[in-house]
Amino acid sequence: MKKILLLSSLILLVNMAWAQDDLLDELVLENKKATPVLATFKGTRIITGQSNENISKKHLNFLVLHRFGELKDDAWYYSLLGFDNATVRLAFDYGITDKLMVGVGRSSVLKVYDMNIKYKIAQQTVGGKRNFPLAISYYGNVAIDTKTFPDLTRNNYFTSRLSFCHQLILARKFNDKVSLQITPTVVHRNLVEKKSTPNDIFALGLGGSFKITRSTRLNIEYYPRLNGTDEKTKSGVAYTDYLGIGFDIETGGHVFQLMFSNSTYMYEQGFITQTTGKWSDFGVRLGFNLSRTFSFDNETKHK
């Protein structure tokens, strides 16, 4: 009986103690929810290749991308660091949902139109009791080469103009400063230059972003090919693996990306399989991406 008495007094005590509990404890516990990690990368591209980032629903991104001529081509002052031989890609990306983004672009190199889609399969989360460790996205595109066919006497098919790229994007923001990404990629060309050239090229993209200040980041991106590494252009120049190093500078609605890379191409088929510049002999180009985001989301506009 004494035990029961003790127990009931204990219950009473616990109850009283519970009542004096801090109001905050319960609220803080209630707010401990897993939320998506933000800003793994600053832009929808790490440098030239895709990042795991999308733009939000009903937001439009206007991109102006430039790659200058190779720095070794002329004295720097003669072509102003390659400015005179610049190539351009203009593009629009649009967020259909927060997870699905579509885009179109036009490159001046090879008169290429490209259409692309990026879907967020999973998001890395933070702050919950159990968090998902990785952001997973799919990116796919089709590029249409609209240059006049070199040999008009041949039977030329429209499908010969097409090439495709599929990427699985695996990204993780390790902490406030460091984000890394692995991007298994396959590029398929319907028509290749030589019979011996593989139609499918596999590559393993590697990317990283390092925060310098709140508004600037240093990015690195490398796309080693896994096959077709001894391919050459018609004139006998060996294709090389793409490597870029760049800076992000963010100013409110703009993201300005300044980079050095060895490719003139600004779509995946180009920079992964057709890059010819060599970092080792200064075949490097200056380039920049400028992106501006516009919101067309009138629903969440507050009155």
């Binding site: 209630e30 707010n31 733009i55 939000s56 985001t293």
Partner: peptide, 13 residues
């Protein structure tokens, strides 16, 4: 107690 990430802005950027 407010979860900061729950603040909604018209402009997602």
């Amino acid at each position: 107690v407010i979860q900061n990430i729950s603040f909604n802005f018209p402009n997602k950027l």
